[in-house]
């Protein structure tokens, strides 16, 4: 790992000013992706601005919204009574990320800011139509994820929390890589008051909505409704773990399982 300057931010605003004062600073949340990346010398930030002291943790739930602070760990979300009651699929998703030690450090803000193509949380943010609140603005889940490891965030913008609207029903099913637990394909299905949403992670360069499946499920919210819809393999990821064709097939299987788990 190349060396860097380490600073602790006392608030989101403080983190923004420390990033702006640095040469090529990076925000440090749980570090579950950033530190391994730095160990491989794939990243060499001049400064790490640690957000652990910025008071960005905590979960609040109202009738319509579950609000999760950016520095809240996966373990906290997985074991939160509020989350399990309001959006059980979200608690289950958080409990399936990585392994217990990773869940004790990794955070929701870090996960979505990194936007790994195979990360779980982006599927929930897009699938539930959540809103990402930064120290500058609110960004709709539909506008947040821009491409592989790319988001709508500015370099010096800090995620404060994510607001998830409570769905009528929702479910997330993934086909995890047996070694890393990253999703080879993961599908988040949600039935909300404004319609059905289907978000797919792991399959493409970035999480995306399967609109054809959404239309089919709007007519008939059942696994069988998806029997005739398929996802094109064009542009899907292909690697040693799964071909694009296989991933396209898995999207259908995971989506049907997710719908079945909703019923």
């Amino acid at each position: 790992m190349y060396n860097f300057k380490y600073q602790v931010a006392s608030s989101a605003e403080d983190a923004t000013s420390k990033i702006n004062a640095s040469d090529e600073g990076k925000l440090l949340a749980g570090g579950m992706t950033l530190l391994p990346t730095m160990k491989q010398r794939l990243a060499m930030p001049s400064d790490l601005i640690d957000l652990s002291g910025a008071s960005l943790t905590g979960i609040t739930a109202s009738e319509k919204t579950v609000s999760i602070g950016a520095m809240t760990t996966h373990d906290t979300v997985a074991n939160s009574k509020e989350v399990s009651t309001a959006i059980p699929a979200l608690a289950k998703l958080a409990g399936g990320i990585g392994d217990p030690a990773v869940r004790n450090r990794g955070t929701i803000g870090g996960s979505i800011a990194n936007n790994d193509p195979a990360a779980d949380y982006p599927a929930a943010v897009l699938g539930l139509g959540a809103t990402v609140i930064t120290n500058r603005r609110s960004i709709s889940g539909d506008d947040f994820f821009k491409g592989m490891f790319e988001t709508a965030l500015e370099e010096d913008e800090v995620i404060v929390k994510v607001d998830f609207p409570t769905p009528l029903t929702a479910s997330y099913v993934k086909f995890p890589n047996p070694a890393s637990r990253y999703a080879i394909v993961g599908v988040f299905v949600a039935k909300t008051i404004s319609g059905v949403r289907v978000a797919v992670t792991g399959a493409g360069a970035c999480v995306f909505r399967a609109t054809e499946m959404e239309a089919a499920l709007t007519k008939d919210f059942s696994p069988a409704a998806l029997n005739d819809s398929s996802i094109s393999e064009d542009g899907l990821n292909a690697d040693i773990h799964a071909s694009a064709e296989y991933r396209a097939h898995l999207v259908g299987v995971m989506a049907r399982r997710a719908v079945a788990a909703c019923e």
Binding site: P36, L48, D50, A101, V102, N104, S180
Partner: peptide, 27 residues
Amino acid sequence: CDTSQCGACVIHVNGEAVKACTMLAVQ
């Protein structure tokens, strides 16, 4: 492994299991 996979480095930090190879001493 030094890559957060194997768990040989698990310790408790403030009572929680963490992988000590994926945390900085300053943290």
